[in-house]
Amino acid sequence: MTKVTFIEHNGKEHTLDVADGLTLMEAATKALIPGIDADCGGACACATCMVFVPAEWESKLAAKEPMEETMLEFCEHSAENSRLSCQIKVSPALEGIRVTMPESQH
């Protein structure tokens, strides 16, 4: 189990113990955290599970695949530190990670 914190756009925090191997998106949607839609269920097809990852965590995550990279490039609220949470696998290396969510996924 790895502790991760999701922070809604309005600042509300949700800290979860997540089974390693799940994606951040799965952890959030199964726990009903508002702000992550994940319409496609994790197929990297819809870009509705975007989160912002603080710079200090970036090196601990697997690099973006080209598919994720370009999907993000065309997302409305995308920023330099955006990631698609369906592409981030939870592992002990992410213990304590805090990600924030955009205003909207559409």
Binding site: M67, T70, E73, F74
Partner: peptide, 9 residues
């Protein structure tokens, strides 16, 4: 097909 920019835009 394997073209997310075309899809998203």
């Amino acid at each position: 097909v394997n073209r997310p920019p075309e899809f998203m835009m």
